[in-house]
Structure formats: structure tokens, C-alpha cells
């Protein structure tokens, strides 16, 4: 193509910066409320500058026992991620590399289960969990999260593994390795970067999940989104508290986006984009 002039590139960069600000500023605005003195919230026009305080952080952690909530969130999101990786990785390897009859049907089934609306599933889940005494339990939530995470994980990891070179596995097989050994010794190390990338995505989805946690969880398993939603209803809105909880929820996601943004774009498009 005709060479592109430098001034245009600068112009585009400025445009993109403007767009990024438009999308990121609201997030900043939300987070700023967690450090803002409460008396400034309702000033007109809205106040931009203030001396940050941490009173609300201390209050929220103390009165809501936010540490317990954070630990719940970590257990549930971490547990779901771990379960997904343990069960999903062999399946992805098999679908990507081995000869499986009905592969297309299996893949279709997997992507179909990614589509199910959570709230529709919650009705039978609620009754089944009531019967099994799994309501308000970590393990119950971890299992329920498989509805969306397992499909996402197996699908993406299969797509990504298919693109990895298979030469080494062929060599190992020719050397007399058993297929299972090939999977453990050659396949797994090869898949490791993809496992991490897709695992992180599964963690983010579980970390952000709301309806299952709200309706199948309870007092002992409250996750951050549930506590945030609860701060909305009871007797007026606790704005500062909402901001604190939101900030806590945002931090790990921000870190992951910073390191893995290309893989995340790829994951959100179910592998359709090469990130």
C-alpha cells in the first residue's frame, strides 16, 4: 500500500487516546469514590479534586468482614479454575490431537453448553442442591460454575492446541512412547502457556460471576459480587462501600489484563481472533 504518513499516525494515536480515556475514565471515577470523603459525594457540580482518605476502606473491611468475602471469592473462583483445568486439559488434548469419533458432535455439544442462560439453569440447580444439601457450599458453586467455564476452557484450549506443532509428539510416538506418556511428557509442557492463558480467563469469569453466587450461595459463601449487590438494597445505597468492593474486584482483573490482553481478546471471541 501507499506509505502512511507519520502525521496521520500521530493523529490516530491521539484519537485512540481520547477513546481510551472515554472508556477508562468512568472506571477511575468509580474507584475514586472509595477514597473520597463522603460529604463531597453530593456536591454540585461533582467534585474532582480532594484529599484521599482510607476511612471507608477500614470501615468496609471491618463491618462487612470483607476478608472473608475475598477468601470466599478466591476459593470459588480458584476452585472452579482448578477443576476446569484438571478435567478440561485432557479433553482438549484428546480433541485437538487424537482420533476421536464424533469429534464435531462433541465440539458442538460443548459450544452449545456455553450458550445456556444461567438463570434458566438455576431453577433445577436450586432444587437439586437443596436435595443434596449443596446450597450455600463452596463445592456446590464450584460445580455450578462448570456450566460456563468447562465449555469455554475445553473449546479454547482445543482450538489453541490444534495450532501447536505436533512434530515432537510424532517423534515420541515413533520412539515407542505410549500415547499416555506422550500426553504427559510432550503434550502437557507444550500446552502450558495456553493452559495458563485460558485458565486465567476461566478465573476472571468465575471471579465476576453473579447469578449463581447470588441464588445458590448464602451467608457462608458470599462472594464479592453478592456482597456488592447486597450493599445496594438494604436501607439506601452505601456508595463508598460499593466503590471499595468494586475496587477490590477490579484489581486482580486489571493485573491479568495487563499481562495477557491478547489472549483475553482471543478468549472472549472463542478463538476466532488470533489476538
Amino acid at each position: 500500500m501507499i506509505e502512511d504518513a507519520r502525521p496521520r499516525k500521530i493523529l490516530r494515536t491521539l484519537g485512540l487516546i481520547a477513546i481510551v480515556i472515554a472508556f477508562v475514565f468512568p472506571v477511575y471515577w468509580l474507584l475514586s469514590f472509595s477514597f473520597k470523603p463522603e460529604r463531597l459525594f453530593f456536591d454540585l457540580p461533582p467534585v474532582w479534586t480532594f484529599d484521599p482518605i482510607v476511612t471507608e476502606w477500614v470501615n468496609t473491611f471491618r463491618t462487612l468482614k470483607l476478608w472473608e468475602t475475598i477468601i470466599n471469592s478466591i476459593i470459588v473462583a480458584g476452585g472452579s479454575t482448578l477443576l476446569t483445568i484438571l478435567v478440561g486439559t485432557p479433553a482438549s488434548y484428546s480433541l485437538a490431537r487424537l482420533r476421536v469419533r464424533g469429534k464435531t458432535d462433541i465440539m458442538l455439544f460443548i459450544i452449545a453448553s456455553r450458550m445456556a442462560p444461567a438463570v434458566a439453569l438455576i431453577i433445577p440447580f436450586f432444587l437439586i442442591y437443596q436435595f443434596l444439601d449443596l446450597l450455600d457450599s463452596h463445592i456446590g458453586l464450584i460445580f455450578a460454575y462448570s456450566t460456563f467455564n468447562m465449555a469455554l476452557y475445553v473449546w479454547l484450549l482445543t482450538v489453541m492446541t490444534r495450532e501447536l506443532p505436533a512434530d515432537l509428539e510424532g517423534v515420541a510416538e515413533a520412539d515407542g512412547y505410549h500415547p499416555f506418556q506422550v500426553f504427559l511428557r510432550i503434550g502437557l509442557p507444550l500446552m502450558r502457556p495456553s493452559i495458563i492463558a485460558v485458565g486465567v480467563l476461566a478465573f476472571i469469569f468465575a471471579w465476576n460471576e453473579f447469578p449463581f453466587a447470588l441464588l445458590l450461595g448464602g451467608r457462608t459463601t458470599e462472594t464479592l459480587p453478592v456482597v456488592a449487590a447486597r450493599s445496594l438494597s438494604a436501607g439506601g445505597v452505601e456508595w463508598a462501600r460499593l466503590a471499595v468492593i468494586s475496587t477490590v474486584m477490579v484489581i486482580p482483573v486489571a493485573v491479568m489484563v495487563f499481562f495477557l490482553h491478547k489472549q483475553i481478546v482471543r478468549g472472549l471471541s472463542m478463538g476466532a481472533v488470533r489476538g
Binding site: L16, V24, P26, L30, L242, M249, M256, V257
Partner: peptide
């Protein structure tokens, strides 16, 4: 710029909603 731009899309829908509520 691209990680920054991606950021809103991976926020919990809950956080996104709270943000707009504020």
C-alpha cells in the same frame, strides 16, 4: 493502549452496573 482499552470489557458486569449507577 490496547490493554487499557480492553479493561472495561473484562470488568464484572456487576462493577460495570455499579459504575453507571454512581
Amino acid at each position: 493502549l490496547s490493554p487499557l482499552l480492553l479493561f472495561p470489557s473484562v470488568l464484572a458486569p456487576i462493577v460495570m452496573a455499579i459504575m453507571w449507577k454512581i
